[in-house]
Design a binder for these strands. Structure first.
Lengths: 271, 271
DNA sequence: GAGTGGTCTAGACCACCTC
DNA sequence: AGGTGGTCTAGACCACTCT
């Protein structure tokens, strides 16, 4: 049958839900430019007719695309193609951000591992990881530099069995990425919750980050869950926001007018 | 008819959509403790039967509650009452501070409008909004309280034409939500970019926020684009993170199964 | 095996926006 | 005035989870 992209229609025997198939088609049209940025998509009714789906299914697809930032929906006006997804994307970042930092831009991340051992977990970590009180776990303390400047100090608390995995990797040497190590072991970030506070650097942290005590720092606490909703990482990070720019994206990656100023915008911070 | 909360059923003549009514009922049951944290809600089918609604409508309500953090939905297992009180301002949400805190949770946001007028824009705003140098715009300065505690100070810079719209709304009185006013006017948030820093409160801001000079504050800068990638808002916010919990969610809303003794869900871990 | 949510259909009515 | 999305109904089938 004839379809807007000249391809086949919805694959009726595939296990892939129709709404996902439709979303993929639309995504494709946006990323290839067939639908230019800002273009209005066909109405829900038209889409339903074109692809031979019910409107509810079309709406499910649009809802997904909106959530992923491919499309903006305005009540009673329609859905509009948004920014084509760029390479960096997912600033909500399921990926390790320092990996991104290193691979994407030419920036150098140096890691000093200050501690990497099995130990009793603090109460906050036990609670976040939903372990029995008094549980032991694996504790990883790292000081990290960005382009030679001290950038942040982090403490990860991991469940024992995961810690064991990590201890046998190249993470403790400071060379490996915790995030990618975990991912390879099957612990993909399904969801995470992070809180951000502004705190004054206390003595120890101030020393580590080479700032005067009392200097404002960003403190980020994060808990990460896998697809089964099992928490597998809890960490706290103290960030010098004068060194690392922390950014949050809503919707599709924002347009960056290639204008002159502030060259570096680091993304965010992660394990 | 008899309902779980002993009240009336869905008001069939109200303009309020059924799914919003249902969501309000469930929210109420959670906040009053009728549904304790971690309790499983009735199944979609049961809810539909109980309230005499179709399942699609029930799902719409559950979707909303999940989005607002009142409920965690787990595929094929059900919806569970969550603990929204502990959640904070979702920095990557499309909702504004006011909507986010007020709708849903029972929190009181008070707004003092300190300034609302047409004025020349600072260079940073002109650049962010991509206006000609020296442009005028609409400047909105607000001090906001959360449950009676001074929470944040914000300055919005809006293009003139949008400012005119806003000036005629109830935003300058401190009663309206800027975010929803803009949305109703067709300026939906397609994408936004926000940076977060930790800064020391300087004299003026410290006074406004009732903290000592030098106190660490979160400073958030944000630019918002519509579907056509035209920037329509630029603002800066100084936040007392001891008053407002600032949170970032990655992926689906995070789970919050109750206490540690919960019937361990799939604590199985992949190899 | 029973229960649950995921997915899907084929309608419908209405308020609101655009033309 | 006509088009659009918001809302709603009353079904259906299926894969997965729980017990």
């Amino acid at each position: 049958m004839s379809t807007p992209d000249g391809g086949e229609g919805i694959d009726r025997v595939s296990v892939e839900p129709y709404y996902l198939q439709l979303a993929a088609r639309i995504r494709e049209q946006i990323s290839t430019g067939a639908l230019a940025m800002g273009d209005r998509l066909p109405s829900e009714g038209e889409l339903a007719a074109t692809w031979n789906l019910s409107r509810a299914t079309v709406r499910e697809a649009l809802r997904l695309l909106e959530e992923q930032g491919w499309v903006t929906r305005i009540p009673r006006r329609g859905a509009f193609a948004s920014m084509p997804q760029q390479r960096g994307w997912l600033l909500q970042g399921r990926e390790g951000f320092f990996e991104d930092e290193v691979e994407g831009r030419r920036r150098q991340v140096t890691t000093h591992v200050l501690r990497a051992e099995q130990a009793p977990l603090p109460e906050s970590a036990v609670e976040a990881l939903q372990l029995p009180p008094g549980s032991h776990g694996y504790v990883l303390e790292r000081l990290r530099e960005l382009d030679g400047k001290v950038a942040l100090f982090s403490i990860n608390y991991l469940p024992l069995q995961i810690g064991t995995l990590v201890s046998r990797s190249d993470v403790p040497t400071g060379e490996g990425s915790l995030n990618s190590t975990l991912r390879k072991a099957g612990y993909a970030v399904a969801s995470a919750s992070r809180t951000v506070e502004a705190v004054a650097a206390d003595g120890d942290i101030a020393d580590l980050l080479q700032v005067r005590a009392g200097t404002p720092l960003l403190k980020i606490k994060s808990t990460t869950w896998d697809a089964k909703l099992v928490a597998f990482d809890h960490h706290e990070v103290w960030v010098r926001s004068d060194v690392v720019h922390v950014e949050i994206q809503v919707g599709a990656p924002a347009p960056v007018p290639a204008s002159s100023h502030s060259p570096e915008i680091g993304r965010i911070v992660s394990p």
